[in-house]
Design a protein around this nucleic acid. Structure first.
Length: 272
DNA sequence: TCTGCATGAAAAA
DNA sequence: TTTTCCTGCAGAG
């Protein structure tokens, strides 16, 4: 679930569902109890994503300098999940780190990598260490291009590095490389400006689709036939988790290897 | 019902 | 490079 598109989608949804409401905040699990007590009864003002990071903005309902404001930083990691619940809220099951209860519904957060109070300086530092996020209007591809162009690291590794581009995960990494015909093992220094631009523009195209649909779907309709799909739905990926299955374009078995501890998938014929 | 793996990334070693 | 976070799902039985 949680590549960048999922976080941007969550931010929009949570702001729509809870924005402007005074919430009851708790931490049934206890690990966020002190912070939850500070937030309890405050107004949930907005939610915003930078890459895979989510920021909740809170205030006490007053305007201007008199207002007390707080920021909460959330990173879901690989396990983290939000679940919406109808009121009245059910008894917590599992480890509920943060429970938000509004006028119409509640939201439980389980298993996050991070859930913590941020200062404005913390947020500034976070944004400063992230690369451009293709889902944000202010994203500057030149920053990403420079990072790629001067690095000897494999492009498959660079695309996963949040300092290079924020919000890309294992699926977008694999699929964008496939669609651009780029071998994941090539050093960044060998990537041409044309290849980089093609991948960046593809992210600009694909990631908003992910936000709208709520999942990553990159297979063009004309390629959506033949080989058995990974999921029971229509095929969504060209290479991700399709090890040994025929490439949707050329039929060559999709290759797998481990790159820096993560699964890597590519077509050895289309990406060379 | 049980088991192992997963779309991350910071911290530890 | 390994450990940690400890949910949700797919596949096996």
């Amino acid at each position: 679930m949680p590549e960048g598109h999922a976080l941007h989608r969550l931010a929009r949804r949570q702001q729509r569902l809870l924005g402007g409401q005074r919430l009851n905040v708790s931490s049934p699990q206890g690990r966020f109890a002190h912070e939850a007590a500070l937030l309890d009864g405050m107004v949930f003002r907005s939610a915003e994503a930078w890459g895979k990071h989510l920021i909740h903005r809170w205030d006490d309902g007053r305007r201007g300098k008199a207002a007390t404001r707080r920021l909460v930083h959330i990173h879901l990691g690989i396990y983290g999940t939000f679940r919406e619940e109808a009121l009245p809220m059910p008894a917590p099951t599992g480890q509920v780190r943060m429970r938000l209860v509004g006028d119409d519904l509640g939201i439980d957060l389980r298993g996050p990598n991070a859930c913590e109070i941020y200062t404005p300086d913390d947020l500034e530092a976070l944004v400063a260490r992230l690369g451009p996020d293709p889902l944000r209007a202010d994203a500057d591809p030149e920053i990403a291009w420079r990072a790629v162009h001067r690095s000897k690291r494999a492009i498959g590794s660079l695309l996963m590095d949040q300092k290079v581009i924020a919000g890309i995960g294992n699926i977008y990494r694999a699929e964008v490389l496939f669609r651009a015909g780029v071998d994941p093992h090539r050093p960044g220094t060998t990537i041409t400006r044309e290849e980089f631009d093609e991948m960046w523009n593809d992210l600009l195209h694909l990631m908003p689709i992910g936000v709208r649909r709520g999942h990553i779907h990159v297979v063009r309709p004309e390629d959506d036939h033949g080989a058995p799909a990974y999921s029971s739905d229509r095929p969504r990926t060209y290479v991700y988790r399709r090890t040994g299955e025929p490439c949707r374009l050329c039929g060559t078995p999709i290759a797998w290897s481990e790159m820096e501890g993560r699964n890597l998938f590519w077509c050895p014929a289309c990406q060379s």
